[in-house]
């Protein structure tokens, strides 16, 4: 009986408490809606998340891209005002946290996947572009990796319809299916 109680307590702590405890969460600096921007600013991801001339990926757009439209408040929302006051006016880059930031030892080339591989953004990033709110950025307390790449639950990444994970296993899965090479240093640096 005490054995069972102990087991149950541990199961509860391990399945419910632990996943909460292991992640540190922080909100994104700006209340940003992909959906609104997709409607008003640009229809394609590349309109903001652009490639540079040399083919490298610029990632999250810098303030100048935002300021191109948001030099002055475009709406009356508090978030808009806050963005202008806190970032645009003092010309301070928002401290965006990239959900999909790979670890330092990973080399990932967007252009290779987009141009040569013909992958759609959604294939890896899911429907991020249609989201109305930015979810908080969660980071593993010990490993320091974003939850999006390190911490999908066991079943989520494999489940049908779910966003493909960004763990090494997911990369390898896809490469294997495509018959692409996957030696370690293909993707690690």
């Amino acid at each position: 009986m005490p054995f069972l109680a102990g087991a149950l307590a541990a199961l509860g702590a391990g399945w419910v408490g632990f996943p909460h405890a292991i992640y540190k969460s922080r909100p994104q600096p700006v209340d940003f809606s992909h959906k609104v921007h997709a409607e008003k600013a640009g229809t394609k991801c590349e309109d903001c998340h652009a490639f540079r001339e040399d083919g490298t990926f610029a990632g999250i757009p810098s303030l100048s891209t935002c300021a191109a439209c948001h030099a002055a408040p475009m709406g009356t929302t508090a978030a808009e005002k806050n963005f202008i006051d806190a970032y645009v006016t003092p010309n301070r880059e928002p401290d965006w946290a990239s959900y999909a930031q790979q670890p330092e030892n990973v080399f990932f080339s967007h252009i290779t996947h987009v141009k040569l591989g013909q992958l759609k953004c959604e294939q890896c990033h899911g429907d991020q572009g249609a989201s109305d709110k930015l979810r908080p950025y969660q980071v593993d307390r010990i490993s320091g990796y974003s939850r999006d790449i390190w911490g999908r639950t066991l079943f989520q990444s494999k489940a049908a319809g779910a966003v493909p994970g960004m763990k090494m296993d997911d990369c390898v899965d896809c490469h294997r299916k495509q018959g692409l090479s996957h030696s370690c240093l293909d993707c690690h640096k």
Binding site: D54, G55, F107, S109, I111, T112, K115, L116, L185
Partner: peptide
């Protein structure tokens, strides 16, 4: 030494940007 694998990556990426594999 891995023959500067970072440079290999970069070269691959440049090739990809030019549409070559």
């Amino acid at each position: 030494c891995n023959f500067c694998h970072g440079r290999w990556h970069a070269a691959k990426e440049r090739a990809a940007a030019a549409g070559k594999s």
